[in-house]
Structure formats: C-alpha cells, structure tokens
Write a protein that binds this DNA or RNA. Structure first.
Lengths: 124, 124
DNA sequence: CAGTATATCGTACATTTGTACAAGCTGTCA
DNA sequence: TGACAGCTTGTACAAATGTACGATATACTG
C-alpha cells in the first residue's frame, strides 16, 4: 500500500480543495462560482491553486471540451485525517479534548449539534 | 477596545507558541528543551520563530540575566479562537459538526464525552 | 580581570505561498 | 470557415516561511 506523504496543504489550497470536494467534479469556473461572496480572488489565482493541488497529488483532472475538470485524487477522509491531526498537534499537542471543549464553550456547537452528533455516534 | 487583527500564525510559529503557553514564561533554551524528541530544529531557528512571534504581537519578553524570557502578549483563548475558526472555515466551511464527527469516529472522543459535552452546553 | 559558556542580533537564503497578467490554443456559432 | 468567447500555459514576483550561520555582547568563574 502506497501511503505516501503528500506535500503539505497551504491554507488557500485547503480552501480550494474543500470546494472541489463539495462539487465532486469541478472546472476552474465552477470553483470560482462556489467561492463565498466576500472572497475576492481572481480566476487566474484559483487556477494556479488547482494546478498546484494537482501537482501536489491531491487532485487529478480529465478534459471536457477545452476545460479541465478536477476531482479528488486521494480520499477526502485521508486528507481530513491528516489535516486535523496536524492542527491538533500544533495547537493542542495532539490532545483533542481541549479542542472539543473549546467548540462547546464558545457556542461553535450548540445543543442541536450535540444531538445530531449523539445520534451519529450512537448509530455506529 | 483594541481588538486588532494580528498577522496570521504560520504552522511552525503555532507549534512554538504552544510551548510558550505551556511553560508560561520561557527562554529560547526552555522552548528547545520542551520540543518533542523527534523534532529536529536548531536553537537558532527556535530563536527566530520566537522573535517573529514577538514582532507579530503574540509574545513579549523581559530580560533575565542575559536571556530573554518570553511570555504571551495576548490571551491564549483569543488566539485559539481565531485559529480554530480559520481552520474550521478552510476545511469544513465553518461547520464544526464534521470536525466533532471526525474526532468521534476516530476514537478520540466517545459517547460519554458527548454526554458531558451536552451537559456543558445545556447549562449555558 | 580574563576566559568561557551562553545569548542575542543581524543577516541570509532557498522555498513556498498568494496573487495574477499575457500569450496562445480550441470549441462553437453565425 | 473564421472570429470570438473561454481555457490553459508559461511566467512573474513580492511576501511569508523554515532554517540557520557568524559576529558580537555579557554574565559568571577561577
């Protein structure tokens, strides 16, 4: 099994990668259209980011007409796992509990979220 | 109230900042000593990172003997809040539930934790 | 007081990141 | 078929990042 370590994701790359995941398959234009309203960033920049994501191994593409259609080259799960892991290490020394507490105490998650979550984990 | 927006933290800076928080007050040497075993990074590099953290406004220092003693210049809480917020935005579009879910599914957090969490948020 | 161990300071430098323009292809529609 | 809208490619470039050396300053120790 080739569990090779892809080059790290930069913040902006992560932001773009998330949108590709969301769209499943996406052209540069598609990604641009999905950018949050306030995000002022040019088509060309999105394109560069997608190019880099592909070079780094996170995306692949096929051609449709004259456009590139990008899609995930590695499982989202795996990327999330690593990103969260790295983040946890850096900010909390790897201990997830403080993060959870933070989320709870700062209203990032509310009672409803907990309910949903409870259902999710119970089901497992 | 001066809620100014400090320059973003880089991953390595975050890593070092966490150690200063942990130590409360720390010299370059102290930080080096707290680095996890595998982390190969020179004294000089740690020093640069601390310098940058101070320039960015996250740390301040006073002198003790010939050494600088660094400590937090802004509340850890505030930094955490922003870091987690940014991270959540980039990777999950701001929705914390998938993150919690990830934590849950990887055995980092179990049903009991969620129960406690529920109580925590209910009480608020 | 002079030497030594320990600090900081100034600086450097290759990469990565964020951002984007300009030039050159290529479907498509009139 | 020829022009045009829409894409990609090549390239650029300043700023941030990760990493660290060499020179200089300074507190202790004998």
């Amino acid at each position: 099994m080739t569990k090779r370590r892809l080059p790290a994701l930069s913040p902006s790359e992560t932001e773009i990668l998330r949108l590709v995941w969301l769209l499943d398959k996406a052209t540069v234009q598609n990604v641009c259209d999905k950018l949050p309203a306030g995000r002022k960033i040019s088509y060309a920049t999105v394109q560069t980011l997608l190019r880099r994501l592909e070079k780094k191994g996170y995306l692949k593409h096929h051609i449709r007409g004259k456009a590139h259609v990008f899609s995930a080259a590695v499982k989202r799960e795996a990327v999330i796992k690593r990103s969260v892991g790295d983040f946890l290490d850096r900010l909390f020394g790897g201990d997830p509990v403080p993060l959870m507490q933070y989320l709870a105490e700062h209203g990032k998650i509310d009672a409803d979220d907990i309910e949903r979550l409870k259902r999710l984990t119970d089901k497992k």
